[in-house]
Each structure stands twice: as C-alpha cells, then as structure tokens.
Design a protein around this nucleic acid. Structure first.
Lengths: 337, 337
DNA sequence: CAACATTATGACACCGGTGTCAGATGGAGG
DNA sequence: CCTCCATCTGACACCGGTGTCATAATGTTG
C-alpha cells in the first residue's frame, strides 16, 4: 500500500512529472497519445493529487470560508447545504466560521482567520453581507467574497439575494385581502438589510390599499424567539388589539402564537399570525404558519459558484441576481370577521 | 506589504530558518537568548506560519472532518459548535461532511473524502458512530476518529456519550409519578443506538414500577417530524387512548402535540406529552415540552479534544466517558386524573 | 587540562506539487 | 533539402515549512 505521488505516476508512465502535472490540470500542449497514457496510469494506480502540495505551489487552499452570526439553526444549515453543494462540485471545501458581527474585534478576527487558514474566498451571510466595514476590508486585502441576501449591489461584489420587499408585500396583501387592516408588524434585527426590506414591503402594501400605517403597531425585534416573545406581549396587550400580526421571521411568529395560545386566543379566528422564512417550525406547530419561502440553498449555491469562478478566472463583470420569494399559506391566517 | 515567511524572519533575526522552526514549534535545544530574539522578530514582523507548507512537510492538514446524517438542524449546529470550539483551541479547522449512512457507497465516499482532503481525523456523530463497518474501515486505514453518542466502547475508540438509558428512565418515572400507566412510546431511527437505549430506559422504569409493557403502545419512528406525525395518528386513534406519550425526540413529540391540538385534545389535561433532546422547538411551542437535555456541545467538544490529543501524541489508553442527561419539566406533562 | 558528554546551531535534502524556460520534435513553406 | 515556426517535453528552481545529521559551542568529569 505505497503512497501514489506524482513522481511514481511519472516514472510508471515514463514521462516527466511536469507532463503529469499538465495532464492533471488539463493544460494544452500535451499530445493526445501522452495524455491518454498518463490518464490510464492515473486509473491504474488510483492516483489522487495531494491538495496540500498543490495549495503550496499555487498559493491556494481550495477552501472557502462561510461567515455567519444568526440565531436560526435552520437558516444556517440551509446556507451550509447550498454552499457545500457548490464547493463539492468544484473540489473545494467549506470552512465554517460562526462569529459575532458586534464582536469587539471583527476585523481582527477575520484577518486572523484569513492568514491562518489561507482561505481562497469568503461567503458572507447576513448580517455580515451588509457590513460595509468588513467588505471594504476584504476589498483592500484583495480577498474574493460573495454576498448572500445583501442589500449591497455595487458592481464589484458578487451578490445574490431574494426579494424580501416583494415577499413582505405579498404577505401583507394576503392579510389585507382577508379583511385585516390593523396588522401589527414585528421588525427584525437592525443589522440585517432584510429587516428594512421586509418592513418596506409591509408599508408599501398598506399604502397601496390606502391603509394608514400605525406606528403603535410596529414593534422592534431582532429575529430571535426571545425578542418575538417580548414583542408579542406588547402587541397582545394593546387596546384595541390588532387582528393580525406579521412577524419578520418564523421564530418570532412562533413566539406570538405561543403567547396567544397561552392566553386562550384562538388562532386564526381571533388573531391571524404570519411569519417569514418558512423555517421548519412553521409547519411543526399548530396552526401552521403562513409565511414566505426563500430559496436560501439556491442563493448560497449560486453565490459560492460565482465566487469559485471568480477565484479561478477573475472577471470584469460581476454576477448579481435577485431570486423570487414565494407566499405559503397555512392555517395561521384567516378572514377577519 | 511583503509576505513574511520563515526565510525573512530568519534573515531578519540573523539565524537559520531551522532555528526559527524550532522556536515556532517549541522544540528544545534553543538557547533562551536566541528564542527571545526570534520571538521578538515574530512580533515585529507579525509573522504567521503558513499552515499549508507546514501541512506538506509534516503530512498533516490540521483539519478535522465531521460526519453527520441527521434530520435535526439543532442537533447538527450544536455538534458543530462543540467541535469548532475544540478545533479553534488547538488551531485546527473543521470540515463538515453531511452524507448518508445508507448511501450506496458510504465507504467509497469517505475514502474519497479522506484522500482528497487529507483529514487528520474524523468525528463520527450518530448514526455513523454506531457503524461497525465504517469504524473497521477507519481502523484498517489507520485514521484517527472519535465517536459521539455511540454505544461502542471498545478500548480502541475515543467515545463520549450521554446516558440515554438513564434519561429515558427518569422521564418515564416522572410520568409514572404523575399517575400515568398507559404511556405510549415512539421509537427513534433503528440505526441510532440512542433508539434502543431510550427504549430500554422506558422499559426499565415500567418494570421497576410493576407496570406491564404493552406492545400495542410502542410505535416505530425515525426521529423525523414526519415519522412522529404518522405515529401520532396511530396512537391517538387507539382505544383506549393512552394518557401519555413519550417520543424519542422533541420533533416527534411536537408532531404528537400538533395532532393532539388539531383534534381539540387539551395538553396536558387530556394527554401528557414528553420528548427527548431539549431541542429549541421544545420551548418554542405551547405547551412547552417536558424533555431530557443532553450535553451535546460538551460531548462533541470532549470528543474532538481527545481526538486532537490522540493525533498529536498517540496514546495507549483511550478516553471514554459517559455524561449525564437531565430532566427538564415543562407544561406538556401533568397529573393523570 | 585533556577527554568526553551535552547543548545549540545550521546546511541541506525533502514533502508533492507548479512555473519557467530551454531544447527536442515535427510539419509547412520556400 | 533547409529554414522557420508551432507544438511537445523535461530539467530545474521554487512554494514555505520540517527532518536529519554534522559540526560548533559549552559544560562536566577525572
């Protein structure tokens, strides 16, 4: 069981190791006969190039880093899953790096990460994808990166997002169509651009239907279940109580549902509740939550694929795209009587 | 902004690069004065050794792989979090590798992973940690590994688990103490050793209290929410209906709760429900689920730490440990009337 | 103080690939 | 048949560290 290196392949095939390397990397200027011969030896010896040696010679690691700071486990795993798919397709690996946006020394932390791990690129997920400071740092350091679900679309950044504003608009419109006019809204974390986008969609729908925005119905949250619980308390204590609540994500919506149920309110008869994200919890509870599904895996997959392309052959034109979100209606919303 | 390599450090400090290497690795046989001098240059030049070059020279990657195939996102993120903590502490990185135990070619898949990524070790989480086939393969290939939540304790394997049997025993006893005797049980996935352990705990508690085990009350699940929903239907259709349901994890318990609520059963007045794992959903729903909390992060952290120790200095005595699980009571269980 | 053991240091090859460049080979054109 | 150019191919240095071993410097002993 000896190690198969490029040297043994070269010797066995009767060519120089440089020629083997050429075949390996699909470089031109290898005669078809030689290429064939070497490829055959690859199979015979079951040769697999050592990525570490390759990395050293090319100053590459074939590793993409994924930054996140998100309370939603399901969001994180969806992001990972999309990123992994793209990585594996191109023989890259994924390094996960949870860290805090508001941490004392984010830039230092990332700098450390980059120099110790020699990452070839970074995928930034919210809220990092909206951090100007971080992005400027990466630009200055000449590190390739891709933004997921970011509001930034600046011609220099690969950026894939979904249409939060439109999603929130449709969901609000759905509630309005059910006869609701007093619709409370729970905002997300202020560091995420999704927070503002979703709120804007809500406002636009109200405006469109000539329903005045009531500031009193807008609560501050931060996407965590806990913050949803706090907002839920404030909202359910209001008089008059709104007939519907639109929370900026499903966890906060679940918190509203929990409190409402505790207080013997019937959902959706007495109170309609809607969320955002289509997290697993949205269908694990009763009644199931009406929500907006986003293509998180798809977004991340595209972002990482573009990132890898950018790494292998830097391009002038950078890829940007907005994917569609879609409304999913479940039992938690119903006609206002 | 030139690159700082071991050569530049050596030159700047006026020593050979081998000496720099010695200081870097805390090797003996360097005079205190020289060591001091080199360390000072490290700081001055902000030198960070290139892990790739190091890896090539030592035939190491400083990367640990983490295998999982688990429907629970929260479990996965907890595992990752524990593993990352241990990795970062020792300057390792974590590569995540979701794959299917029942996949057509698991061994090939892992073989591929190992040769292309040159991992220094693997952490196996359930159900991989119970796969004899995989473990034998790793032994034969001389790959270091650590088992998380495995039933295997064979003196050659690092193995950290928590006491599932005891946890299930305590939870069942809790239900018995509340006056329940007809306690349905939903099993987990047959590939996980936890499934049998939890079932054994349930049986032991019944036996201890002279309650005969009723086969009709035992349903097959597989830890997924969906399987829980199927079992829930079977259980709630039974006549007479049991007064309590103990599901082998919280997702399945949540499915029981959802169906019970849909059917207008009051929980816990008409039906007590308990789960296992203390997943986030257990406290995100109403009523909150009585469950068993396991130290998942702690298990994984310990496993990875031991794994890294094993890698750096192979030891005769291998580390094994059983951590305690603990009962968490919430609103979903109450006295049987 | 000679003889030897111990500690400190550096020269050099090596890990397994890739980049550069010079030289070999072969076909087209005059 | 010779020149010229395009296509192949390999020798060799190099990426940034580590291992081996010889040698220099220092310490210990009789």
């Amino acid at each position: 069981m000896k190690k198969v290196t490029i040297n043994s392949v070269a010797q066995y095939a009767g060519v120089s190791k440089k020629t083997v390397s050429r075949v390996l990397n699909n470089e031109p200027n290898v005669s078809p006969a030689t290429r064939e011969k070497v490829l055959k030896v690859f199979k015979e010896l079951d040769y697999r190039p050592n990525p570490i040696a390759r990395g050293l010679a090319r100053n590459k690691s074939f590793i993409i880093g994924c930054l996140y700071d998100n309370p939603s486990k399901s969001y994180i795993t969806r992001v990972q899953s999309g990123a992994l798919e793209a990585c594996h397709k191109h023989n890259y690996n994924l390094l996960i790096h949870p860290c805090e946006l508001r941490g004392e020394a984010l830039i230092d932390n990332i700098d450390q990460l980059l120099t110790t791990s020699r990452l070839d690129g970074l995928v930034l997920t919210p809220p990092f994808s909206d951090s100007r400071e971080l992005i400027d740092f990466l630009k200055q350091k000449n590190i390739n990166y891709a933004l997921v679900a970011s509001a930034i679309q600046d011609d220099e950044s690969i950026s894939i997002c979904s249409n939060d504003e439109q999603g929130a608009y449709e969901l609000t419109e759905h509630l309005i169509a059910l006869g609701h006019t007093d619709i409370a809204f729970i905002k997300g974390h202020p560091d995420h651009s999704a927070t503002e986008n979703r709120f804007n969609g809500y406002k636009r729908a109200l405006e469109q239907h000539q329903i005045p925005l009531q500031e009193r119905l807008v609560a501050e949250g931060n996407f965590s279940y806990h913050s949803g619980a706090d907002s839920a308390k404030a909202i359910l204590d209001m008089t008059p109580r709104p007939s519907a609540v639109f929370a900026s994500n499903d966890y906060m919506a679940a918190a509203v549902l929990k409190l409402a149920t505790q207080r013997q309110l019937r959902v959706p008869e007495d109170l309609s509740i809607a969320g955002f994200d289509n997290a697993p919890i949205a269908r694990h509870i009763w009644p199931g939550l009406t929500t907006i599904a986003q293509p998180v895996e798809e977004m991340t997959r595209l972002a990482v694929e573009q990132l890898i392309m950018q790494i292998s052959e830097p391009q002038e034109q950078v890829y940007q795209r907005v994917l569609e979100a879609r409304l999913i209606t479940r039992e938690s919303t119903a006609k206002n009587h």
